[in-house]
Amino acid sequence: MSVDQDTVRRIAKLSRIAIKEEQVEPMTGELNGILAWVEQLREVNTDGVPPLTSVVEAKLSMREDVITDGGIPKDVTRNAPETEDGFFVVPKVME
């Protein structure tokens, strides 16, 4: 499988990375180079092989339902580029 330039534009959009028109062609080439290389995985017969879910042999441990966190609004927002009255600020979003 290989990607065309429209696919690269679509992936960039899905990834939320602005891509300049002149970058599309070289990026297409780079991605196709990598995709062609990983293509060799298709040779492997994986019939009946389950996908790996975890490398560790452990059970998901659970925590108790107690409040142990929060109450740190300043820590939460202190690195933010823009805040107002304790909220994060972003350009207006239309619903």
Binding site: M1, I11, S15, I17, I34, V38, L41, T46, P51, L52
Partner: peptide, 30 residues
């Protein structure tokens, strides 16, 4: 980083997940 994010986005996207990501995780089992 941009290149890897885009490759990662592509191999998880609709229609390609099984061929790439799922196959890779099966190979990982092997």
């Amino acid at each position: 980083v941009q290149r890897r994010v885009m490759i990662g986005t592509y191999v998880l996207s609709a229609g390609y997940y099984d061929a790439y990501y799922l196959q890779a995780q099966k190979v990982r089992t092997l």
